[in-house]
Design a protein around this nucleic acid. Structure first.
Lengths: 352, 352
DNA sequence: ACGATGCAGGCATACGATTTCGCCCACGTG
DNA sequence: CACGTGGGCGAAATCGTATGCCTGCATCGT
């Protein structure tokens, strides 16, 4: 062998394999791509090429491959907030699910409100660079991104689209049913003074808040004024919101949070206010994030079927990516049902 | 305008722009790439090209760009466990930091122990597809991946390498100093019976456990037998480990956890065992994850300087990516110092 | 007046893999 | 022996962008 400096060889190309195996580069391509070709290859030649490729440590260049119109096997993911444990779990599911389909995931970040960043993002994500794009969370704040995606040819699947205009095939959970299940549970325990704490950007969990308002009106005729709290940030916000609620003349006996993260903030606030959970205050979360079973006390919450949702979304995305952009079915919406998980943060209200 | 079917136009190329603006494709490239070129372009021509590109909705094809040996502006990230809130935060920092440098992030997952998946991963990640690779966490379980990366030409930066062989430039926190700060804090409060709960895969947080063992031997002559607990999973494991510890004849008065997530499990276990924190048990975490300030009670922990670490790593990765692989400095190791953050989960031990 | 210089831009090629067309040879057949 | 046939493979175009090199023209210097 003449590999005097094996460390420096900067990745062999098909041409190198061809030269070493003494065939043409076309033949190398045919052998290595593996697909049944119209051109027959002699078994002996095939073996020689494969062996040479292995010896030289050949790796295909996905760029060159993609250039010819083939797929890059990349799925772009645009996420609102990484540090949110809920999305963290969703991303994990997305990556696992994508890899099961033979795809990798490119992450884009769409933070706060910044058209600039988000639009420069699409420049990288789309244009055949990714075979499909998956949107995680409400993208209403990023009209530029949505517009770019709409114009582009890459298929898009939206997860938990919230209030985003429904212009792509979407997958969502039935937030309304989830909230109602949680509230029903509280009511069945005897609660009537039930508050709601929402967090995150405006509109983010609007459907959950609306479901709360609807339920309360339905069941009690009206929403106690001031019982629907909103705060900008999840953790500190949940904290501050609970303090406001408990300062009232008629403090709630139960709180439904728009999110488990908010619920964690609420639990913490209750603790530091000396309000025992669930004795004096019941708390219901939403999402069933990983630590929900290990909060103090363990959180009663509504389980979001993340893996089902993500699995469905990836399957859709892959299917759309494979089709030559022919389908063009009208954007559909798939809804998954959440389940109530009763743990230790809910109990009948204290006797007065 | 003659755009009769604007929806179907499958992304214009430079050639299209060139034809429409009546210049050559080279000129379009020179104008749009923006870089100072040896070839001068008349302002009028430049404007015409720019206008045409805008009208046609031109987007560069990063594949073709990368094919020419240019960079893809992609950083590959390989992560051990997404759902771990700590890594979730790290990934967010990584994405933000990368985008600040003009890079996007491709995610790879390196779950449990599975050479297959991890190696198929590199096929996509390396080979000039990504300009650099960032490893998050201990990759000891993935020798195949490490070998592939070693052979390839992409620069690699390892974050929190743990016990991985130090073959790439690495960035880490001073786990030993962090653990010692936490233990020192406990000792200064009067604790002597201090246990340690480790979690995750074997070796994952070995340095932290070793620091604990060292400190205990140094300070008290020996580690109380059975005080160094280990469990396979972070949350449920922390829970089970604490139960074992509190069942002993000489239960500890304080617990240091290898991780905030473990500490959350410990807090939960203490709660369900009726052990008040911090009255009867002090708990110290490590990492300062987002919810650490909002556990019940708020967790005393050691802050991991994630953004500093990730920022440094990305800067290194970008620098290495820009260099034509010339540098080849010996793998260095950069260490960041963690700080103790005292909250409400620690107090002097109960009087006996 | 004539070559030198500078400006503006086109031509051609390279990047690495896929794919379409053919070429050549061996073999079989009439 | 001429001719078809099909197996086995190579040559070359192609994808979209970047760049080195060249050319045409006008101006400038002497």
């Amino acid at each position: 062998m003449s590999d005097d400096q094996s460390a420096k060889r900067p990745v062999p190309t098909m041409r190198d394999i061809a030269a070493a195996a003494d065939v043409s580069q076309s033949t190398v391509s045919r052998v290595l791509s593996g697909v049944p070709t119209a051109v027959p290859i002699a078994p002996e030649t095939r073996q020689r090429v494969l062996r040479t490729a292995r010896e030289l440590g050949y790796r295909p260049n996905p760029l060159a491959r993609g250039l010819r119109g083939a797929s890059t096997n990349l799925i772009g993911a645009v996420v609102r907030d990484f540090s949110d444990p809920f999305y963290a779990g969703a991303i994990e599911a997305l990556v696992v699910e994508s890899m099961a389909h033979g795809y990798n995931v490119v992450l884009g970040h769409a933070p706060g409100r910044s058209g600039e960043v988000a639009s420069s993002l699409t420049t990288v994500l789309e244009t055949r660079h990714t075979d499909a794009v998956v949107l995680l969370g409400d993208m209403q704040e990023h009209p530029q991104l949505l517009a770019d995606l709409r114009d582009s040819i890459v298929p898009v699947v939206a997860l938990w689209p919230g209030t985003s205009p429904r212009e792509f095939p979407s997958v969502d959970a039935d937030d309304r049913a989830g909230i109602r299940a949680g509230l029903e549970h509280l009511v069945s325990l005897g609660h009537t003074r039930i508050a709601f704490v929402n967090a995150e950007l405006p509109n983010e969990y609007r459907a959950r808040e609306d479901a709360y308002l609807e339920f309360m009106r339905e069941r009690f005729g009206a929403v106690p004024p001031g019982y629907a709290e909103r705060s900008p940030s999840a953790l500190a916000g949940g904290d501050a919101a609970l303090r406001r609620l408990m300062d009232r003349a008629d403090p709630p006996t139960a709180v439904a949070a728009s999110t488990d993260v908010v619920a964690v903030g609420v639990l913490h606030a209750a603790y530091s206010l000396g309000v025992r959970v669930p004795d004096r205050l019941s708390v219901v979360g939403f999402d069933d994030i990983l630590i929900a079973a290990h909060t103090v006390p363990a959180l009663t919450t509504v389980r979001m079927p993340i893996s089902e949702i993500v699995g469905y979304a990836v399957t859709q995305a892959v299917r759309l990516a494979r089709e030559p952009a022919g389908g063009e079915r009208p954007p559909d919406l798939e809804i998954f049902a959440p389940d109530l998980i009763v743990r230790d943060s809910t109990a009948p209200p204290a006797q007065e």
